[in-house]
């Protein structure tokens, strides 16, 4: 077990302000190390059910690693990750594949299959996991594509789409199985401010319509202000503070204040 220096965590109160609903996802004292790089260093947090939560933090602080732990693409060196009542590291492969059908994940660049057109990409999960006929699949796919503003791009291949379109298409694909939990890995990366704002609006609208637990990983404060109902601030592999977004934006914690205000002076430097 790697040594943890407690003085690095002077701003980490670990305070978890209640959101008023049970947690859909829980990290319990999770440690994860890659070589000599300790990424998660005793991470404990809960993400509330039915809300849009954001894991915010500086670059390289373990946010994407969190998503990979939630979906079981990575396992903790120690600690536990509990999703919808299931301990992810304890699940068998078959049970994990079954549980993953309840997830939708939007990867940074959409992760569309390059050999399939947009329609087939979005239809893919339905064809693999359901017995629906092609007519029903077409109805769902067209509805989801229209929802994200890509109703006329069915035949386009992923390499013909802009970055923003790929993200929206990835979003449509992540929604086709009506997932209980949708995870977004930096949906704003590589997008201009206007398209970031539009994507955030889209996330809010779709959540309002479909419900479910949404978890967004980002370091963009504007996105957090627009979308987040619950915020967990992650730094150095641990939660600094977590709670309903309004309370976090009013936090007295020096690090949280600096990060959420995007100020250059404060505990967070270039190191």
């Amino acid at each position: 077990m790697a040594v943890v220096k407690e003085e690095e965590f002077e701003f980490h109160t670990g305070q978890n302000r209640p959101a008023g609903v049970p947690d859909a996802i829980q990290f319990i004292d999770v440690h994860k190390t890659f070589g000599s790089n300790q990424v998660l260093r005793g991470l404990s947090m809960g993400l509330p059910e039915g809300k849009v939560s954001m894991i915010l933090g500086p670059s390289g602080t373990g946010k994407s690693v969190c998503i990979k732990h939630i979906v079981g693409l990575m396992y903790p060196d120690s600690g536990d990750v509990v999703v919808a009542g299931h301990s992810i590291p304890s699940l068998s492969d078959d049970d994990l594949f079954e549980l993953r059908k309840k997830f939708g994940v939007l990867f940074q660049d959409g992760a569309l299959f390059g050999s399939l057109n947009l329609y087939d990409n979005v239809a893919f999960p339905l064809r693999q996991h359901t017995e629906k006929g092609e007519d029903e699949i077409a109805e769902i796919v067209n509805r989801r594509l229209s929802e994200v503003g890509l109703g006329n791009a069915n035949e386009k291949m992923p390499n013909e789409l802009s970055g923003g379109m790929r993200k929206r298409a990835g979003f449509a694909r992540s929604l086709v199985l009506d997932p209980e939990i949708v995870l977004f890995d930096e949906p704003d990366s590589g997008l201009d401010p206007v398209r970031t704002a539009l994507l955030c609006e889209l996330i809010k609208e779709v959540h309002a319509e479909n419900g479910g637990t949404y978890v967004v990983i980002t370091h963009d404060i504007m996105s957090a202000r627009r979308v987040a109902e619950y915020i967990a601030v992650l730094w150095r592999g641990r939660i600094v503070e977590a709670g309903p977004s309004q309370e976090l934006f009013e936090s007295e914690n020096e690090f949280v204040r600096q990060f959420l205000a995007g100020e250059s002076s404060g505990p967070l430097g270039m190191e």
């Binding site: 979906v71 693409l73 079954e98 993953r100 994940v105 990867f107 660049d109 992760a111 569309l112 693999q128």
Partner: peptide, 18 residues
């Protein structure tokens, strides 16, 4: 390899496909 580095393999996994 291209699928791996563009997260397509991870996308398959998280869709519940081995």
């Amino acid at each position: 390899g291209a699928m791996r580095i563009s997260d397509e393999i991870d996308a398959l996994e998280v869709m519940g496909i081995d």
